[in-house]
Design a protein around this nucleic acid. Structure first.
Lengths: 204, 204
DNA sequence: ATCGATATATATCGAACTGATATAGTCATT
DNA sequence: AATGACTATATCAGTTCGATATATATCGAT
């Protein structure tokens, strides 16, 4: 866990796992869910293929420990927990790190860039799909979403079970972005479709 | 270039390069700039380390051709151009592809999630940095931005040199997202900082 | 004048990560 | 009884990133 203050790299999966465990114990499977559906889902990604090796490495380095927990009617779990060393290292990393660039990747927006070369129905479908995904995301982000209360994955809760201010802020920002996206689509979709139609007519 | 209709993968660099060349000829270096600063910068990424091998592969597959162009006071260029096969393949890919999930990655938002564990000055600095980056991005995205007229990289222009409707739509969406982000920060930053301060006082 | 930084331009490579797959059991639906 | 979905860990091939090397030129600062 060396210093990366100088680089432009994004946080590696080991650091992300430490962060995920700041909210309490969790299995590798549960950590993935935090990035897939949970607290971190709209602004960080990590797959199982990187999480499990990361947890192994972190165990070797003394950053986390685990206990194997037998379950009825379920495969055994390895429940991981931060060591005080791990906690210290994570917070030190946050203090020392120049945060990497934000990166947003969207196949749909890339494809829409070529709208003029596509059938208009496809363009419409792409925009609708984009809107649907953001509608879903807006819903998923909500920290007060009743769904989330059931699962133990939601990190960033204080003693009262309330989301911490930081989490609330980040969630609110995510929702604002989703809403802006949806608003833009409501206001501009039909205009784009019309323009594409006129252009196609002019060509023909 | 096989069918990936069934998978959830994002577009590979080869496909992105074909798309970049839809706007006309370009060198590998120029393609990277499209993803770094140019048209695609806010929603796709590709690095030189993947672009050059991709162009080599595309040449082997007959999707692109290149001419070596000598330059005065500059290293030689390899100027790539789509073949009709490449153009057809790209458009077929767009038609056949189920677009991969959008993915947004932000170290800053991840860090802000732990605001309670950080010094308040760092939290403030992170938010300011986030705002500054989005301010910059909002400016960079503008397809009518005078800066862009100089460089030949801006794809998605029709015969009149005007951005195509698709590009305009995607750019507008990007700007709307930036604006929403900035608005949210304006309206919520001081509230967060205050809340963090009160909590810290209560602990002490 | 020379130094360091930045820009143009291509190429390569180790390290990291993704997505797929394997294994294995449960549960609900068809 | 079969298919698919969920819990759970593990591994690996293929892809991509970030760093670095090489070579040349410009430009501001010392």
């Amino acid at each position: 866990m060396h210093n990366r203050m100088d680089t432009k790299q994004n946080m590696d999966v080991r650091t992300l796992c430490l962060g995920a465990l700041m909210g309490g114990e969790a299995t590798g499977y549960e950590i993935r869910k935090m990035f897939e559906d949970g607290t971190f889902s709209h602004f960080q990604i990590a797959s199982l293929g990187s999480i499990y090796p990361a947890l192994t490495k972190l165990t070797q380095d003394g950053m986390v420990t685990f206990v194997e927990r037998e379950q009825e009617n379920r495969p055994d779990k390895k429940v991981y927990q931060l060591t005080s060393e791990g906690r210290r290292t994570f917070l030190r990393t946050l203090l020392q790190t120049r945060p990497g660039e934000d990166r947003y990747r969207s196949d749909i927006l890339f494809m829409l860039t070529f709208a003029e070369e596509l059938p208009i129905e496809l363009t419409e479908a792409l925009i609708d799909e984009f809107a649907a995904r953001h509608e879903m995301m807006k819903f998923d982000i909500d920290p007060d979403n009743p769904q989330k209360d059931e699962c133990p994955l939601a990190h960033g809760r204080d003693e009262d079970g309330q989301p911490t201010p930081g989490c609330r802020f980040v969630a609110g920002l995510g929702q604002a972005m989703c809403e802006a996206t949806l608003k833009f689509i409501r206001e501009n979709k039909s205009g784009l479709i019309e323009e594409l139609r006129t252009r196609k007519d002019r060509k023909a």
